[in-house]
Simulated scan of single mutants.
Amino acid sequence: MVAQIATEKLISGQVTSNNVSPLEGINVTNTSNKIMVVTDRYGHFSILAKEQDILSFSAVNYEPLRKIINKQEFNMGIITADLTPKSIELNEVIVNKNSNISAESLGIIPKDQVKLTTAERRLQTAGDFKPVQLLGLLGGFLAVDPILNAISGRTKMLKKELTNEKKEFLMQKMENLFEDKYYIETLKIPEDFIRGFQYYCVEDPDFARSLNDKNKTMSMFLIVGLASEFKKNLENNEK
């Protein structure tokens, strides 16, 4: 008795999603003869196969599917497959966990761009008048605002505002660095004069630099000498 050899023939098919939408670009592989084809824009494909061959359907955004060609499908020469979209799990967004997110990291502003304070922006907008700019004014290509600001004294006022703003920032740093108890018990500064002593300290260039550099050791070293000077001034004023 001669064994019957299964023959191959061209099988046509269609791949869909939810039995409705035809899927283009789906890889269809006959795992027996290793032939692979890709579905067209209507989800159609044709592949050489025989009964009981296994067709493998795969795509990036869909769950893989393996389908055996049964006798009826082989006789009809038609096969269909329906793929399930892959579910995408999104990580939970925790605000504190992503505290490093900023306008720079998102590309909204250039990295390392200098950030100006309110007073700095006002001064930059106002401009800074220099005598040489009179030549530009005569030539007709100089902006008038810097001239008017210099005449009105607005630029000078804005510079003073910027200086005061910087001092307030330093004052805030001092308040975060030293408690009132430290001024009273360690430095022996009268409680009513703590605020005045803080202003006295931020006027000192070396101490201001140590605050800006976040050099706590240097700040603590310098503040002892400043406290001694401040108390002597108080004593002299009381005489």
Rank of each mutant, 00 (worst) to 15 (best):
M1S: 15
V2R: 14
A3Y: 15
Q4V: 12
Q4Y: 15
Q4C: 10
A6M: 08
T7A: 13
E8V: 04
K9L: 08
L10Q: 08
I11F: 09
S12N: 08
V15H: 07
V15G: 02
T16S: 10
T16V: 10
N19S: 13
S21K: 04
I26M: 04
N27S: 14
T29D: 13
T31H: 11
N33I: 12
T39P: 08
T39K: 02
R41A: 06
I47A: 04
A49R: 04
E51P: 11
I54Y: 14
L55E: 05
N61F: 14
P64H: 00
R66Q: 12
I69R: 00
N70W: 12
K71T: 11
K71F: 14
K71N: 15
E73Y: 06
N75Q: 13
N75H: 09
M76C: 06
G77K: 00
I79K: 00
A81W: 08
A81Q: 05
D82C: 05
D82R: 01
D82W: 11
T84A: 07
S87L: 11
E89Q: 12
E89K: 10
L90W: 09
L90A: 08
N91Q: 14
V93P: 07
N96S: 14
N96C: 06
N98S: 13
I101F: 11
I109F: 10
I109R: 04
D112E: 13
L116K: 09
A119G: 09
R121H: 12
R121I: 03
A126I: 01
G127P: 03
D128C: 02
D128T: 05
P131C: 02
Q133L: 08
Q133C: 03
L134P: 08
G140T: 07
V144T: 12
P146V: 02
L148F: 11
A150H: 09
S152Q: 08
G153T: 04
R154C: 01
R154I: 04
R154P: 01
N164V: 05
N164H: 10
N164F: 11
K166N: 10
M171S: 11
M171Q: 14
Q172W: 09
E179C: 01
E179K: 01
E185V: 01
T186Y: 08
L187R: 01
K188R: 07
E191R: 11
Q198G: 06
C201M: 05
D206G: 03
F207A: 02
L211W: 05
N212P: 04
K214E: 10
N215P: 03
K216S: 02
I223H: 01
L226N: 02
A227Y: 11
F230K: 00
K231S: 05
N233P: 09
L234K: 03
E235I: 04
